[in-house]
């Protein structure tokens, strides 16, 4: 069954602030943002940022996929948001990957269609730490020149996986990296170099 963890203390304003932080990160790929507002203690094995973003963004219209049998997380998300938990990653609007090694290949998540590229998955990947200014070299919309993002605990093969994702543009998935309270984004529009 699983235990139900607490939800957002202030659902209206916490969700708003955290969405704005996510919007900042998504529109400025590679920038690391610490989520503002209250972050409830997450159920195993989610990190606070991943749990808070799900609470603020998903509902009955956006199916969620978790990478494995996580009864506490699954029950908490269902209880607070009403989102359905799906067994196939390809059916999810939001996917959470808690073990980085399970991220690839990205093709198993919904890619959208040429008519509707927005019908694609937003993948939240939990990592050990995030730091701007070193690491992967990023270019593209949202970035003045180049940006750099260091991802602690990134899965093997992440860079070629993201490059293939970029080549599928406008199809593809958008990645939200979450470490503790921090997030950074790598949307499909970003060119990534090791």
């Amino acid at each position: 069954m699983g235990r139900i963890a607490a939800g957002l203390a202030d659902p209206v304003h916490d969700a708003q602030m955290q969405f704005r932080d996510l919007l900042w990160a998504m529109s400025r790929p590679g920038s690391v943002v610490v989520l503002r507002g209250g972050l409830p203690a997450p159920p195993e094995p989610l990190v606070p940022a991943a749990y808070a973003l799900l609470l603020g963004l998903v509902d009955g219209e956006s199916p969620v996929w978790l990478d494995g049998d996580h009864p506490d997380a699954s029950r908490s998300i269902r209880f607070h948001t009403g989102a359905s938990m799906v067994a196939e990653p390809g059916q999810a609007a939001f996917a959470v990957v808690t073990r980085a090694s399970g991220l690839l290949p990205l093709e198993r998540f919904a890619q959208g269609s040429h008519d509707y590229p927005d019908r694609s998955c937003t993948v939240i990947l939990q990592v050990d730490h995030l730091a701007a200014g070193a690491g992967l070299k990023l270019r593209g919309p949202g970035i003045a020149g180049t940006a750099r993002l260091e991802i602690g605990g990134a899965p093997e093969g992440l860079v070629p996986g993201l490059q293939a994702n970029r080549r599928r543009f406008p199809l593809g998935v958008d990645l939200v990296l979450a470490a503790g309270r921090s997030i950074a984004c790598l949307p499909r529009s970003t060119d990534v170099e090791a």
Binding site: P11, V12, A15, Q16, F19, L22, L23, M26, S27, G56, L57, V58, D59, E61, S62, A93, P117, D118, S120, T122, P141, G142, F169, P170, D174, P187, R188, S189
Partner: peptide, 18 residues
């Protein structure tokens, strides 16, 4: 709040596909 979430999800995709 549900309408805002729907709009927010759409805006995130809009930003990702300029």
């Amino acid at each position: 709040e549900q309408t805002k979430r729907m709009l927010r999800r759409a805006l995130l995709k809009a930003v990702a596909i300029p």
